[in-house]
Amino acid sequence: MKKKKAGSAVIKKRDPRKDWDLYLFLLLPMIYIIVFKYLPMGGLVVAFKNYKVRQGIWGSDWVGIDQFVRFFESYMFKDIMVNTFVLSFYSILVSFPIPVIFALTINSVQNKRFKKVTQTIVNMPHFISTVVLVGVLMMIFHNRQGIYGNIVHMITGEYPADLFASPEAFRHFYVWSAVWQNFGWDSIIYTAALSSVDPSYHEAAQMDGASRFKRVIHVDLPTIIPTIVTMLILKMGHVLTLGFEKIFLMQNPLNISASQVVSTYVYEMGIAGDGAGNFSYATAIGMFNNVIQFILVVIVNKISKKVSETSLW
């Protein structure tokens, strides 16, 4: 994060001819970024066309904003936007505070070995692949062969209904499996910030008779507030970029009413099965999402600049 410095020193730039080799270094990264990042941005023109593979991007007919209008008027529009927002905000609401609380808790643990071992364990799931995570979820919560099914069977004598057929359960699965996978990893940044707390504050508070819990609230927490704000900005900035990969794997025809979000719909319209002729339509949907996302990043950044002087650029 860049902290805005009032009147930061002006650095004298060098004669670019002396740095010709540095520009040469940048050549390859530049080519990469132009070809694989900026060309696709240019490719967004297909959203305003009726793209036909044979005619190519430039040969296809212009249709203006027809593709966007088609999406807004489609009966899926409302559901998709609601799903995208609900899933995004549910996700942030749950997965943001838990790492903070965990960091404060583990920071109060004094046994160093215990701390180290537990941290190693809780960070581990971060490295599990999305495919494996969803696979494990589906097996453990299988209504007959999984732990879940067998526990319910043991208690009630009957096997429960299939949770993966339930749109309601989909949201909880999506959010809580992410918490399981990432709460430890996400807390690293806070534990790092907490390790910089000046012990003399704690000593002073102790002298005044503050309990350990009070010191967590009044000494530890304020220290990590800047980190919390920064992380929140980052999260908010990406609120609508729901991971396609995981949702796509968890999606099935029975939970589609809760699991169809913008990115999966783009895939379905543009690439999967019968949608193969719908490149333009799918691009328009994706672009609509990206533009909203972009505006959101800019707004969040503006606000945070005003409020906390912490900003992303």
Partner: peptide, 12 residues
């Protein structure tokens, strides 16, 4: 902050 998205990448 901004990207072309899935379909333009696919076409590329």
């Amino acid at each position: 902050m901004f990207s072309g998205g899935m379909i333009p990448n696919y076409i590329l």
